[in-house]
Structures are given as C-alpha cells and as structure tokens.
Design a protein around this nucleic acid. Structure first.
Lengths: 230, 230
DNA sequence: AATATTTTTTAGACAAGACTAAAAATGTTT
DNA sequence: AAACATTTTTAGTCTTGTCTAAAAAATATT
C-alpha cells in the first residue's frame, strides 16, 4: 500500500510549478554544455536572481534530481532528466494541439503551453498525444520526447553553415520568438520547404537563397536561426 | 498606454490560483443562499481553516470583488460574480472537452478540470468552446456560463420531488462525486433518459421508477441527487 | 437577562519562493 | 603571485497563503 501511494505521487505530483520550471531550464541548458550548468545561466534563463537559484538547486539536490557541488554548477540525474523531458513533452504536445486543433499561429503558442505543461495528469497528455496522431515534432520543429522521456535527435544544421549550391529542407527554428516567427510568416517561409543556397556574401555573411520557389536574400541573423535537414 | 496595460491585466491575470479558488467557492455557495456566505461555509468547501478564510476575504474585499463586513459573511460584487462565473465556464468547458474529445468518463474529469480552469488565455477557452460546438451544459448537466459570465438557469427538480405517475427527462446530477457517477453507470442511468415514477415508499422514501425502459427501485439518497426536467 | 455555545477574528508562527546586500570562492590579468 | 573582476553563496527580509491558539462577537439556551 505504501508503495502504491508513493508511486502515484512520483507519477503525478512530485514537483511544484516552480521546481518544474527550474528542471526544464536546467534540462535545456544542459543539452548543449558537457559540463555542469552554472547558477548564473539558470538565473538568466528564468529571469530571476542567482541567489534564488542557489536556494532552489539545494532543494532539488535534496530531492535527488540533480547533483550540486558548491561553486561547481549542477547537472541533472537520470531521474531529473526524465522528469524534465516529460515536462518538455507536455509543452510540445500542447503546442501541436494549439496549432492543429485550436487555430493558434505558431507564434502564439508558447505562453499558453508554458501554463499547460504543468497540468498533472498522465491520462490527459497521453490522450492529447493520441488525438494528434502521436506527432514527433512541435510546430517549431523541436522533437517531442516519448512517454519515457527519450527523444531521438535528428540530423540538422543551421542554414548559415550551408555552402553555395547546397540544398536541404527547412525543418525547424532555433529562435522561436514571436517576432522571428512573424518575420518568417511575412516572408512566406515555412517548415517543410526546400532551400537552396545561391550566394554567400563574405562582407556581412548574408546569403541569397531560393526557398518556396522564390529568390531572396537573408541576413546572417536569419540564417543562424533556421535549421536545415540535408 | 497605462490604460491598455491595466486592461490586459484585468482580462488575463488579475487573480492568483488561490484567489480564484476562493471566488469560485463563494460563487457556488452564494447561488443558493440569499444572505451572505459564512466564513465557516467557505472554509468547509475549501477544506481550509476559518482563519485562513478571514485573511483571504479581506484581501478580496480590497480588490472589490466582494463585500465584507466583520462577522457578517461575504457576498460577491458584480465584478466578483463575473470573474467567478468565467472560472466556472472554463471548468465546465474543459469537462466537456475531456469527455467529448479525450475519452474521459464523466467521473474522471473533475480533478483535471480543476487544474485546467486556471489557465489564463481567453483565446484558448473560446477556441475550445468553438471546437466543442458551443455546448450549453457540462457532462453532469450543469449549465455553462457564456463569455460574459451569464448563465441561464433551467427548470429542473429533484427526482425525489416527483409524484407517482409523473414523468420527465434525467438532465443532471446534484452530487457529481465519482462514486455516485459510477453507481449511475453501473445501473445504466445516463442523462437524456426518460424517467417515470411508478411507486413511492413512505417508509424509507425509496421510489420505483421506469428508466431506460427498465423498472428499478432507487433509494432516497439516489432520488435526491438526480435532476429531472418535466 | 445571564450563561453557554458556536462562529469569527486576531495575533503570531511557518513554509515556499523570491529579493537585496554583503561575504566568499573562483577566474583572469598583469 | 598579487590584484582585480566575476560568479556564487550566505544572511536577512518580504510576500503569499497557510496554520494554531486565544480573544471577541454573535447566537442559542436556560
């Protein structure tokens, strides 16, 4: 009996809203860096103060979801990674739901998904998953972790790294801020379109590309935020 | 500019999770009673202590969503009623969504809807409303307030008040606890079915009814929790 | 009307999560 | 290696929302 109760809590209500946000932030920051994630990096990501971060990571370390040594930054344990990945899973599935079923544009989904990701109900998210046909990517091209928190990374590179005459498919955005997404909408650039690099300008690193059968020039800032699959 | 900011806040993020729960509780308790709602009644409804309630209602009174005079209980202002009704609207629409789109049974929706009702996004709830075809009642037969927080009450009476030979349609439940709903499922009683009173037993106030073309005897406790439309 | 009971409020404490300011550790320059 | 700069931690405070225990008000009883 004791086991069932503790299992249930483990599944559905182990972490507070705030703890979940920290776990997710550390998860995102940890994917790139091999070393631990620094206190300041977390503070920046969550728009909070380093002292608040120190308090919280001590708490999360006691809960065994991350390893913390003073002045050394943190790294998630396996349990922490899984917990975080399942929050990311919820976030991305809700984003797909909002776009596919509720007529949200891809630049409108983030704030709402940020709230919905904290809803505690495994049945709810699994049914949403099924309703959507078990999608593997969110509207911005980011992969959706499975029910165990595993996500298979996909081969992709930034448009800015392509050479002249190389082609590929536009499969995701690195910066998913509303302003960048709206810019892409305005330029009629969407995921799934084929891209070909026609020219690269050494002076400002801008490139001329053919996308959506239209020739256009994009700045380095743009090319640095579009993911291409070869 | 100042005005736009304050309007936005008014629409989407005026109240905390906890404040919303108090408003909803007071709204539900206030529907029946003509007088103010007592501190103890609120405490009981929210499974909290009277002293906590006193603290919170002082805060809500300052925010002008309810009227509070010491030792006199509280009553919602028009703004408070509207705010509460919009939370109830969200709760009930999410319940319909869970049952209609996500294969939830009507006895499983309450806890999840209790979380979903706090999501701040008017677009979200209006799109859910549209997706569902603008339903007027939730899975338990309770009316769904409109976008302005108005709800039109419908003529209904408890099964227990019907006389012998009277008939009606089963349109809602008063007690929507999982155990009662599961009992109704087991007896194959569902909303929309026609009911006819065949006999009433004075001794224990049980009744024999014909429902779903089946003759059955129900206790007073059951008959007191089923709403009938004549 | 006086007493007893119940309800409500006050006072003070606590936990979670955030903040500021200052101290300590680490990293970088010279 | 010493001095400077940055990062991180500590210490103490604040807010929100809760609690217990005791006081005050309202209600019920005799």
């Amino acid at each position: 009996m004791q086991k069932i109760i503790s299992l249930h809590h483990k599944l559905e209500s182990m972490f507070s809203h705030s703890e979940e946000n920290y776990l997710k932030a550390i998860y995102h920051l940890g994917i790139t860096s091999v070393n631990g994630v620094s206190t300041n990096a977390i503070a920046k990501k969550l728009s909070t103060k380093a002292s608040s971060v120190t308090d919280m990571i001590k708490k999360l370390a006691e809960k065994k979801v991350l390893i913390y040594k003073k002045y050394q930054g943190v790294s998630l344990t396996e349990e922490g990674k899984k917990t975080a990945a399942l929050i990311v899973r919820k976030h991305r599935l809700w984003e797909v739901f909002l776009v596919e079923k509720l007529n949200f544009n891809w630049d409108e989904v983030h704030d709402v998904a940020e709230q919905l990701e904290h809803i505690k109900s495994s049945k709810l998210i699994n049914e949403i998953d099924a309703l959507l046909g078990f999608p593997k990517f969110d509207p911005h091209g980011d992969p959706i972790p499975d029910t165990n928190g595993n996500l298979h990374l996909i081969e992709k590179k930034l448009l800015s790294t392509l050479q002249i005459n190389e082609t590929g498919i536009c499969i995701g955005v690195k910066d998913s801020s509303a302003s960048f997404l709206q810019f892409l909408d305005k330029q009629q650039i969407a995921l799934g379109q084929e891209v070909e690099v026609l020219e690269k300008e050494d002076f400002d690193d801008s490139m001329t590309i053919k996308i959506n059968n239209k020739k256009m020039t994009v700045s380095n800032k743009i090319a640095n935020n579009l993911y291409i699959q070869k």
